[in-house]
Design a protein around this nucleic acid. Sequence first.
DNA 1: CGCCTATTTGATCTGATTCAAACAATGTGG
DNA 2: CCACATTGTTTGAATCAGATCAAATAGGCG
Lengths: 244, 244
Amino acid sequence: MLVRLQNTAELLERRLVAGEIMSSRQRDAMAAMPIRTIEIAKHHDVVRELDQSGQCCLLIQGMACSSKLDHQGRRQIVAFHFPGDVPDLQCLYSKLVDSTVSAISPCKIGFIRHEHLLELALDPKVAKAFARYLVREAAVAREWILNLGQRDCLARTAHLLSELAVRLSSNGADGPKEYYLPMTQVALGDALGMSTVHTNRCIRELTRRRLITWASGTLKVLDQVALAEVGHFDNAYLQFRTAG
Amino acid sequence: MLVRLQNTAELLERRLVAGEIMSSRQRDAMAAMPIRTIEIAKHHDVVRELDQSGQCCLLIQGMACSSKLDHQGRRQIVAFHFPGDVPDLQCLYSKLVDSTVSAISPCKIGFIRHEHLLELALDPKVAKAFARYLVREAAVAREWILNLGQRDCLARTAHLLSELAVRLSSNGADGPKEYYLPMTQVALGDALGMSTVHTNRCIRELTRRRLITWASGTLKVLDQVALAEVGHFDNAYLQFRTAG
DNA sequence: CGCCTATTTGATCTGATTCAAACAATGTGG
DNA sequence: CCACATTGTTTGAATCAGATCAAATAGGCG
């Protein structure tokens, strides 16, 4: 299926080139990029033909993650992705593919050929926007390292949920404090580097303290401030200011 | 002190724009960039006037790290830097400064104004090289997450030492298996998310198994293969292939 | 030589893992 | 539309890896 979705271009503009004003010519070029879309079932990998095939994938619908496997087969999730994200933008610049992108919920994915993105990136403004996207991803990764390295499990859990809440609300989700988060506790544990059992106990504890509820894929943040406090969450690292 | 070092340009070309062939005109432009150099004592921060001052720092000599502080004051090191690295290249693209760069050993640092780097980056080839540098840093960060999240302390230690050994040998250091690594076990612990005491015990264990020796700032890797095995280290994520 | 910083060792304690099993929810085919 | 299968959540009990506390030892350096 090969389509030219108007709203795909909108997605790209809101997230990938966020912060740069594009000329209408560029906007047209972006809308004209051929995008092959596919649907991927829950828990399935985005088929990694792309490594060789010279495409990047744009998450159009659903929730996805990037993960790496320990040689014992233990999975570590290193990033979560929401609509508008380009989980493998890095492969535009290096053949190095070090993580696998998988669907957490049923996903709609669009493939864009590198040549089209690279042509857009001939404009230094767009190139900067791409770099800025990579920089933000890296900032999230560094905070993730801090979270895994220094915080106890309850704080770690609260921190990640705080981050997801912030990212989802900028995403224009359901309401101010209620987020559709179609992930399992197993996935949360894989992201937090914690056993599933203990992940569950931490969630239960946060629930007991009336900071959140989480059922059937919906996270309600009852007390965002208190949750952030438990997780020592400071959203500065997500704040996204354009360089002078 | 304002200098135009020939070997600074060489450093930049070998690391930052690695893999891209530069025209002699560009090479000249790079050599002509005014670079203000300073010396920084062990354990001191690279003064972060740069945040506002529109400069990136190039590590010319010594060893440095990027770290973040937990709100309780616990330090998590998120990256190590060696000569040729530009620890804060990200601030070229975003004012977001989320980590602090500190000297682990006495360092010589060069400051380069953003305008000069941005002018180089007008060439899509250079822009790509910069992006590739960010991508590689991000790949290291993701592996770091895997290390903290999934591996036990002994493996974690062995993995980091393996990574440092690989990075240092590509750096053309002393010899094939002997690396000048002027860091303390405290710093190593801060990078590994482990207590200093336990970091020491892991190093002792690696020493007991005759995989390494480490004294007075010199790491000797006695059995690189066995060390990599203990750390489940696969250097694929450091392999750095240019995208088609 | 003596101070300061770094490493090393021992003993104790605890947060988190693992194992085991029940329970709830969701989806599927007859 | 219900029975069954599958996947995900919840709880308890035992165990252990690693943290913490305390203190001795060893190196560098002024």
